[in-house]
Design a protein around this nucleic acid. Structure first.
Lengths: 237, 237
DNA sequence: AGAATGTTTCGTTACTGGCCGAACTATTGA
DNA sequence: TCAATAGTTCGGCCAGTAACGAAACATTCT
């Protein structure tokens, strides 16, 4: 009865995500990087033909966008909204009925540090936000985040200018529930800037075929010193 | 490859929502009230048998919960996480490729004021949050919300005690993007409390078969006076 | 030019999953 | 006890769609 813009059309969006192959592709794109059709095919575990069809549908529905470059086609998530939706689905999938699910070594790397669309997630991200709160650089008043004046200065020193972004539509500091740690970590513009900056500093680096982040030697020291992480931050909480 | 807890299982969750009938049921449950199987069947526009099957699946996946009461079964969303996910899907569905979509009179009522899981949405909700920001009772610093000390006192006078909820897991003040207004409105505990309180005051009342809220005579005056709404708040922005 | 790689289109097949009719169980009320 | 209402289970029908092979198109490299 009360159909309006919701009812029917959310089903279309959801069923688009609700296919194993497409879900795998979208999950891969949650890494934040643009991927080619071939890479996505490998991620999804289906042939190139099948992938092409899927990507066509996702593009038409504006869940992803394409960019032609030579003989490659680079796909990426169309908007933070899409990332948000996939994220929310991850959350309810993780909290659903528990099922046998072995943890492999690759999983372990993902749990330690990975990208989540455009910011960090995993134990590193959770440890960072804890440290930032401890130093009163950010406040997570019941889940909503704000940067303090002290924090602004700190981030400025660290090479992240927050001054210009005050009046942006995009949340400066959002929280994002970590599906592996079940705790919030930093998202929003600040989260994205933090990822960019630490990548630029060479503290972390992206890995080839996975969303996992590698923590470099410079990062080991950098994170610990700059953010005062506790020595046992790698421990599972 | 990098399957972990995500890839596969988000597809299950999404495909569960990705059916027109089930999506309609879930949308109906976004009203926040528990509904019987029969009511949900009418919302979805399918027979009782079909509905039963759908509800079974949704329950098993823990997207909704059941409560037996006499010969009725009351269904409700299992958690705020689920509401969040559906909400996110509504957002991307609304921002997708535009399509012919007539606006009926019932839609108009929904756009004016409705429930969104456990808080208000629509033009009323947007007008309220604007007013609260104008009076410096809440701050929506780039999308993340905080209640000021002044605001705490105001809400306390209004009959909403925010003192006790300081250290709760649930965000006190979250924003939730309004799909009809395309602007944020109040969610979280504050949003929920505001809905409860104004319902208790008789300013608004739920309607029978829809998520629309009726604004009562007492509410007309109450909202305008207490929150200083502009006289033209019903106007489309 | 010819070969190799990346991607799409077409046509076919096979399967999943939604839907309903009919029959069955449970609760309430006369 | 019988009738009415709410909900579930079973079985069969049907449509939508994901999958792949084959072949075409596009781009780059040699």
């Amino acid at each position: 009865m009360s159909r309006i813009a919701s009812g029917n059309t959310i089903a279309e969006a959801a069923s688009l995500i609700g296919d194993a192959a497409r879900a795998n592709m979208l999950s891969a794109l949650m890494g934040g990087q643009a991927l080619t059709a071939g890479e996505l095919a490998r991620h999804a575990g289906v042939t190139a033909q099948t992938t092409s069809g899927h990507l066509g549908k996702l593009t038409e529905a504006q869940l992803i966008t394409v960019e032609k470059q030579g003989r490659h086609r680079y796909y990426r998530l169309a908007s933070p909204d899409v990332a948000q939706a996939i994220h929310a689905l991850m959350a309810i999938a993780a909290s659903g009925p528990k099922r046998y699910h072995p943890i492999g070594p690759k999983d372990e790397a993902l749990r330690l540090a990975r990208t989540c669309y455009d910011h960090m997630a995993g134990r590193l991200a959770v440890a960072l936000v804890d440290a930032l709160i401890g130093k009163s650089y950010v406040m997570l008043a019941d889940g909503a985040g704000l940067v303090t004046d002290e924090g602004r200065r700190f981030f400025c020193d660290f090479g992240i200018d927050l001054g210009e972004v005050t009046r942006s539509r995009r949340p400066l500091c959002r929280t994002c529930l970590d599906w592996s740690e079940r705790r919030p970590h930093l998202a929003g513009r600040l989260g994205a800037a933090l990822l960019d900056r630490t990548l630029a500093l060479g503290w972390i680096s992206r890995t080839a075929e996975s969303r996992a982040l590698r923590i470099m030697r410079a990062g080991e020291a950098g994170f610990s010193n700059t953010f005062d992480l506790p020595p046992d931050w790698r421990k599972i909480t």
